[in-house]
Design a protein around this nucleic acid. Structure first.
Lengths: 122, 122
DNA sequence: GCCGAATTCAACCAAAAGGTTGACAAACAG
DNA sequence: CTGTTTGTCAACCTTTTGGTTGAATTCGGC
């Protein structure tokens, strides 16, 4: 996995168990053992999952007695949303430009070489 | 990697090279060798990256002569955006409820022990 | 001061990811 | 038909991931 932040966030959320944890943490903070309870893996495995989420900045843990309540850092959602938005819009923009281009070509496509349009008739 | 769609999409985008390809494909379709050109890896490696993106439904390829133009399937952005939105909102809602709860406690904490309001003066 | 509960650390393992090189396939150009 | 371009397939290698078990750590309860 690459070590830039966005890569870490996407990688962290590429696991359904971790996504489920995030879903639950969106409702309320929880300890490691509370989080582990529904899953059929050892508590150490859950601890590892949390480390992945923490390294990605998705959650944080604050020491509190011998428990370590896990807290969702909702800002990372903004990071992802921004990336998605950017290319979603780029793709839209592209279609808009394509449409414009096709309109132009429609106006003047008689002088060009007529033998390689791609939407050719069968 | 888990095999559900969202997991595959997140995993596909967890690699900076693949994200860069997506960024470029948002601007225009491209062939494998065009896509490979800027990266310092073999064309086979790029082909593998594209397979990952294709399996995740992020791109599609249509045969066209001996070239295989790669096309961005922008709908997957919606899938991710929906997931993010959902838990972003859940987290917000949670804070709203927490605020309400704290307000309630503020209202009636005189009947109980009056010594632990939260907005205490410094 | 010792016990128990919550969590992490360490060593290990199997499987997957991401890269390589070399051979193969498909389609157009001569 | 032959050759070139474009891309994939196959085998292989190394590193990372996600799991295991067992030992250590840390703090509160008594």
């Amino acid at each position: 996995m690459a070590d830039d932040e966005l890569s870490k966030v996407f990688a962290a959320l590429a696991d359904p168990t971790r996504r489920d944890m995030v879903a639950r943490l969106a409702v309320s903070d929880a300890t490691v053992s509370e989080l582990a309870e529904p899953y059929d893996v050892s508590i150490q495995a859950v601890s590892k999952h949390l480390k992945v989420l923490e390294d990605a900045g998705v959650v944080s843990r604050t020491r509190e007695a011998q428990k370590r309540p896990v807290h969702l850092e909702a800002q990372v959602f903004d990071l992802m949303a921004a990336w998605i938005d950017r290319y979603q819009h780029a793709a839209e923009e592209r279609y808009r430009r394509l449409d414009a281009l096709l309109d132009d070509m429609n106006d003047m496509n008689d002088d060009a070489s007529p033998h390689h349009q791609k939407g050719r008739a069968s």
